[in-house]
Design a protein around this nucleic acid. Structure first.
Length: 226
DNA sequence: CGGAAGATCCACT
DNA sequence: GTGGATCTTCCGA
């Protein structure tokens, strides 16, 4: 936010632009998912493909708290599928849901602590035509139609299980500084699709940029925390 | 080895 | 608002 470099002779625009592409460091991810999740809003997901670059700005995420969270894939311990979550923070955890959709997660927490943040929705920054094609969406796209939902987001970026375990600092999918959302614009509420998880279904671990058009359905339960 | 359920999306009513 | 698609993963027998 106001952490702008005081360097003289650099105008705001070029400074801000350079800052947006700056990779997020390992230490950024090595925190509780509940703390990391809102910090991810407004950041850029950068996907490098042969001959093109796709960029999405995150507008909605959910935190999953590992062994302490009945809604987490890691709640019952390590398995071949969720192995990535138990590894180093700053890596990508990808899983297939309903036999159809690939969902993207950022591994958080310390090594061996399987926290993760599910990436639920994003705004197109660069590569709209290519992503619309992958999604089977006609341009001009309606709000949310390209990456407004976890399955849509993964599809737009061409991500599958092959990218599971790759590094978000050095791989073909990376996270950069982007344009962080001001804390005052962040709303939170219960997570989506985890009704099976008992009390945990009500934990307010879903975070979104309040009123953003690309946030996936179910905005009703989102409120600004403060 | 079988079965049930799933961090979803889309088409249809 | 409801239900079907579609298949991996995990647990229990």
């Amino acid at each position: 936010m106001s952490n702008r470099s005081p360097a003289a002779g650099i105008d705001d625009e070029s400074c801000a632009a350079g800052d947006a592409w700056r990779p997020l460091p390992r230490s950024f991810f090595a925190r509780s998912a509940e703390v990391l999740a809102p910090e991810l809003l407004g950041r850029w997901l950068v996907r490098e493909l042969p001959g093109e670059r796709l960029v999405l700005r995150l507008v909605e995420v959910e935190a999953y708290l590992g062994r302490d969270d009945p809604a987490s894939h890691a709640f019952r311990g390590e398995t071949p599928r969720n192995r990535t979550m138990f590894g180093e923070p700053g890596h990508l955890y990808v899983y297939l849901i309903y036999g159809l959709h690939h969902c993207l997660n950022v591994v958080a927490g310390a090594l061996g602590v399987p926290h993760a943040v599910l990436l639920r929705a994003a705004e197109v920054v660069e590569g709209e035509e290519s992503m619309a094609l992958r999604r089977g969406v006609e341009l001009p796209a309606k709000p949310g139609s390209i990456a407004g939902g976890p399955g849509r987001l993964g599809r737009a970026l061409g991500v599958d299980r092959g990218l599971d375990g790759t590094c978000l600092l050095t791989g073909s999918l990376r996270l950069s500084n982007g344009q962080p959302a001001p804390a005052a614009e962040i709303a939170r509420g219960p997570r989506v699709g985890v009704d099976y998880a008992g009390d945990a279904a009500g934990w307010p671990l879903r975070f979104a940029i309040d009123g953003h058009p690309d946030v996936s359905g179910r905005r009703r339960s989102l409120v600004r925390s403060g």
